[in-house]
Design a binder for these strands. Structure first.
Lengths: 230, 230
DNA sequence: GTCTATAGTCGGATAGAC
DNA sequence: GTCTATCCGACTATAGAC
């Protein structure tokens, strides 16, 4: 039987092809690790999903653990890419009028909701991170210092400008966590939210409702804080 | 070698002993399922943790899945026991002055923080539920209708009384989710919070800080809502 | 009810052909 | 770089002795 088609995949052993395999494995790994966790995700399934060979995981990443680490790095890189402008230096050394700071906070929260609720692969990102938060490995160190800490610090700075409080105080840091938590919950508790709201899926209309609630909570909290500072 | 001590454990085949084994297996199951997930948790480890025999899982629960279902029921029973008074019928058909409703909401949030942050086994509870939210099984149905829905509904009712809004409107339901999310995040993101705050553990002082922040967010949100309703 | 032995399945890693 | 075959360890479930 020599009616075999041109062996499309055989010609993957070029540099560009290898890079494609690598990338496909990372995407598939992220999906499976995020959904099933490190132990329950199988290299066989990941390879199949990436349409790559099982051996390729060992070749490119040294093994399952290496792929896991690469996935963590991919998360960091992706978030930093999206959040890049927000994390770069603030103009004028970070000083700004309270209402400008408040508007900036509102924008940042809105972006966060968009990323966490509307991005198609956000579920896997959050799943991956959730498992790391539950049982930290080296991957959490990368994600914490590459994403969590810089984002939280920046939010604290802007919050402090908006309310006239101290950026690195316990109260500010905790308050910023509550602002993040109220948003993240809609992804984590997605299934419960879906059932309770009677939603079949989360589209732009649903995202808008969440943005509204988060924004109202934000401005109410800032207003109250300003009042008591006075 | 007949110097064997009295076989303490051998005499477990009484009705009371069997019940102890059952309970120990459920507690151990909750711990392992919550920490490692259904697939990654092993019946061997669970049995060892419960100081019971591996075969006892098959005997008492029919298998791993049966134990998992029993753990879900245990969560429902425990939460309903703790939250019992709060979930029972409201006096006077649920009608109450706004400031009474607000105080009640504050108390409910405080209780929630206490349960979620201070209870020693809360980590496993939340871990278990988190995994169900991520990939729902029959266990989520029990937890959703036994815990999520009734608690959320009650919070919506009281929120509506406090703000003069509609209890079952989308806006109210979402707003209540944000109030829950801001609290739950401190358990879910515990490790990130710990690192950022420089906490080594979460004791009464730390819980108090979280309660303060949640309470301030609540009263600010209610005040703003009342203002715009007027 | 408790415990042991065993059967059957599956997953990760490895070596080596191409 | 890709792919296959194979090894070895770990797991759940089951049957049957006590």
């Amino acid at each position: 039987m020599s009616d075999r088609q041109t062996p499309l995949r055989k010609t993957r052993d070029t540099a560009a092809g290898a890079e494609q395999t690598r990338a496909a494995l990372i995407r598939a790994g992220l999906e499976h690790f995020g959904r099933y966790g490190f132990e329950s995700a199988t290299t066989r399934d990941i390879a199949a999903e990436a349409e790559a060979n099982i051996g390729s995981i060992a070749y490119h990443f040294g093994g399952k653990e290496g792929l896991h680490a690469a996935c963590a790095q991919y998360i960091v890189d992706t978030v930093r890419e999206v959040a890049g402008p927000v994390l770069s230096d603030l103009p004028d050394g970070g000083r700004m009028p309270p209402d400008v700071a408040e508007a900036m906070l509102a924008t940042m929260l809105q972006r966060m909701v968009g990323f966490i609720l509307a991005r198609p692969d956000a579920g896997e990102f959050v799943g991956f991170i959730l498992r790391e938060l539950n049982r930290p490995t080296a991957a959490l160190d990368a994600i914490y210092s590459g994403v969590f800490e810089p984002v939280h610090k920046r939010l604290c700075e802007v919050w402090a400008m908006a309310t006239g409080t101290e950026a690195e105080s316990d109260a500010t840091k905790i308050r910023v966590f509550t602002m993040i938590g109220q948003i993240v919950y809609f992804r984590i508790g997605h299934e419960a939210v879906r059932r309770r709201m009677g939603w079949t899926s989360v589209g732009p209309d649903e995202v808008a409702l969440v943005v509204d609630a988060a924004r109202e909570n934000l401005s109410a909290a800032i207003a109250a804080k300003r009042g008591e500072q006075r």
